[in-house]
Design a protein around this nucleic acid. Sequence first.
DNA 1: AGTAAAAAGTGAACGATGTTCATATTTTTG
DNA 2: CAAAAATATGAACATCGTTCACTTTTTACT
Lengths: 198, 198
Amino acid sequence: MSKASQRKAQLHIDLIDAAEKRIAEHGITQLRARDLARDVGCSLGSIYNVFDDLHALIVHANARTLMAIDEVMAAAAANDDDGPRAVMINLAWTYFDFATNYNKPWRGLFDHVFPKNYDLPEWMYEGQLKLLNHIEKPLAELWPNATTEEISLISRTLFSAVHGVVELSLDDRTVGLPPESVRNQLEILITSFLDGNE
Amino acid sequence: MSKASQRKAQLHIDLIDAAEKRIAEHGITQLRARDLARDVGCSLGSIYNVFDDLHALIVHANARTLMAIDEVMAAAAANDDDGPRAVMINLAWTYFDFATNYNKPWRGLFDHVFPKNYDLPEWMYEGQLKLLNHIEKPLAELWPNATTEEISLISRTLFSAVHGVVELSLDDRTVGLPPESVRNQLEILITSFLDGNE
DNA sequence: AGTAAAAAGTGAACGATGTTCATATTTTTG
DNA sequence: CAAAAATATGAACATCGTTCACTTTTTACT
């Protein structure tokens, strides 16, 4: 690899690192181009030599968050000694824990508004589908006769529902659940859903 | 009322009207102080004579949206000939319809990020609690022995879950349900929840 | 009615921000 | 090693929300 593109690749990494750190500390709304340039020791203009705009940089930082969610969910799904129902509840609790403990990156992943018609890279959608896979697997165990299409719809429904419960509970300004009730309510929500569709 | 405070009150109304219109047409992210001043025919500075900042104006516009949601939900809840279970499903569908048909105001209500420690007026929380009341009523019919505390938790869970399903389904960039599946899945979600907790 | 005080209106100016671009520097190529 | 290509730079620009010194209007009082 040439010297120039090596530097460029390193700057690419450094900027994502810096963005990730700033998002984790101050939230995605406080991300500033000038701060990032100072953090990594480059000029303001250099950022735009590596990324089209700040949104492109945010996408990469968000991708890290998405991978981190995937990791904790993969770990939760691997713990399947107690059967698929326990896995489903475990996944929901794990998602809640992640949103709680890595709140600012998690919020950045869902809250940042991209410009109209801004195209997210394909691997961002693939990363989200990977999350669904963790849900689809135990669901397919529970309903061996369901079509993949049915499993896909149900997994999206459950993910969305759990996401909504977690999101509103962690938002001070909306009528979500008090945080101490979330685990119980998630268990009730999932259990009844699984029971009601056997 | 004095002449001066009459004008001020009128400007207050005009600005909220203008903000509401702009949010409905272009989304809350495109709201600009200068545009609003032009819309209502006042100077840029006059806005800050009536509102502390644009966030305060947005709160009032969002309050209108909240009231509009309350109205459609009240209408849906009034249609209770088929019993509380049908009301619950009807409420969810109504919420989905509102989010679809008044998408930009609805997104503005949940998407706009206020400054850290910005205090929303009490009546904004009260408006949200009014929404919950529509859910609590049929729930209380279904479980006459449940405490108000239990009903409150369950209503928040169901609202949050429905909100999550609706939110992600209407967001192109996340793994929500395809819009044509939302109604069915909402019905399944609610039905199974109500069945599983009889 | 007249006048002083208070309130409201005004828009230029400020500071912050994302982005661009002419220029300088570095790296690659032949 | 010199020309060309790539990269780096930061001043400058456009667009925001917000402020404030100043003007105009309204109110209060004699």
